[in-house]
Amino acid sequence: MEELAKKIQSMTLTRTDVEIAEYILAHLSTIGFQTSTTLAEAIGVSDTSVIRFIRKLGFKGYSEFRSEMNARVAKQIAQAHKDLSPGEKYAKSLEKLNPSNLINDVSRYTLENLQRTYSQMDQDTVERIVDILLKSDRKYIAGFRGTACCAQYMASKLLFLTPHVVPVVHGDATAVENILDITQHDCLFLYSFPKYSEINRALMDIARENGAKIILMTDRHTSPLASKADVVVLAQVEGLGFTNSYVAPLSLSEVILLAMSDRRDVTRTVRFKRIDTVMDKEHLY
């Protein structure tokens, strides 16, 4: 379904289009079972709006769209039949929980976020991200306020695997100063979730103008920043309280780091041996 998401990212969307797009992307596995009327009712828009949006996507009509969605889902089911996906494994764990208190409620939300996140993730996307990171000279890892924890984690672990990692975690003028010299040989890895800070847009514009690759981790393909990125990876951050939950983006970050370490055996490098020697000598554990 990645090509559908890319198509939507490249489109200029009205507010109604965004509502329809978000619903479709959130219900890819079941959208083929809905008529245009039931879909319109579920979203709260008119039949005409749905049909108009489907044609914007390049389909002749809703019938063709519906058939295509069912065919894609059938193909995915066939491919995943032999083994449980990470999302399905989390779903199995979820069934055992009894949401009768705060601990169970938080656990439920966390597992649901992980399930939804991993159901939208694929290995090809991970490999594309790893390719960009390995080929880039400098890696700018940015995230502000709540997402600063994600950026700091990613930057600190990435620095263990490769040099020239630049964390950008303060949402002020220093962020612009840090990234202003980014080049076509570098990349920007940005974490951005609601509410999307305007400084994220400014940093992406600078990176794009300078020819750098952009990796965006966000919550939906219709994020206002998605169209500016070379690679978009989705992580769900819904929380029970007043703040987002960053368990899912941190988990995806770990996947990317593990994939990168698998491609580059850091234990055989001079860099690793020097780091290990200093860490051991200074007891920096």
Rank of each mutant, 00 (worst) to 15 (best):
S192W: 04
A74S: 10
R145W: 11
Y285K: 15
R208I: 01
Q123L: 09
T243D: 08
V18L: 10
E22T: 13
I206P: 00
N210G: 01
L158S: 03
S251N: 12
Y191D: 11
L225Q: 09
R15Y: 10
Y118T: 00
E64A: 11
K75I: 15
F160I: 08
R72E: 12
T218H: 07
L234A: 00
D186M: 11
N101T: 09
S46C: 06
R145Y: 15
L190W: 05
E68P: 00
A40D: 03
L102S: 10
L258P: 00
Y153N: 03
T30I: 14
S227V: 10
G146V: 02
A212M: 08
V165Y: 01
I31Q: 03
D230I: 11
C187M: 13
A26D: 09
A74V: 06
I31E: 05
G61I: 02
V255F: 01
S245Q: 13
A173F: 06
F33P: 00
I214T: 02
L94G: 02
A202T: 09
D265T: 11
R55W: 05
F189M: 11
S36G: 12
D265F: 10
G239C: 07
D131L: 04
R15S: 09
A71K: 14
V50C: 09
G61H: 09
K82Q: 12
F272V: 04
S223H: 08
V50G: 07
I182V: 12
Y140E: 04
I214Y: 02
T174L: 05
E95N: 07
L216A: 06
F59T: 10
I129F: 03
H185L: 15
Y153D: 06
S49Q: 10
S29R: 10
K213F: 06
L114R: 01
V255H: 08
F65W: 01
D181Q: 14
L250R: 11
S119F: 02
A80P: 00
D186R: 06
V169F: 03
V232P: 01
T117R: 05
D47P: 12
V45P: 09
D137P: 03
I43W: 04
Q236P: 00
V126A: 12
S85N: 04
P86L: 12
Q115M: 10
V270C: 03
R263L: 04
S251R: 05
L234Q: 03
L159R: 02
A74L: 13
V165C: 09
S223D: 06
K82L: 14
S251Y: 07
F144S: 04
K281V: 09
Q9G: 04
Q184N: 15
L161N: 05
E209S: 12
S192R: 06
S100A: 13
V176A: 08
S93A: 11
Q120Y: 01
H170A: 14
D137K: 15
K281S: 15
E22W: 08
Y118P: 00
D124V: 09
A207K: 05
V45W: 08
I20E: 08
N104H: 05
G44M: 08
H185Q: 15
A259C: 04
P86I: 13
D83T: 13
I129C: 13
F59C: 03
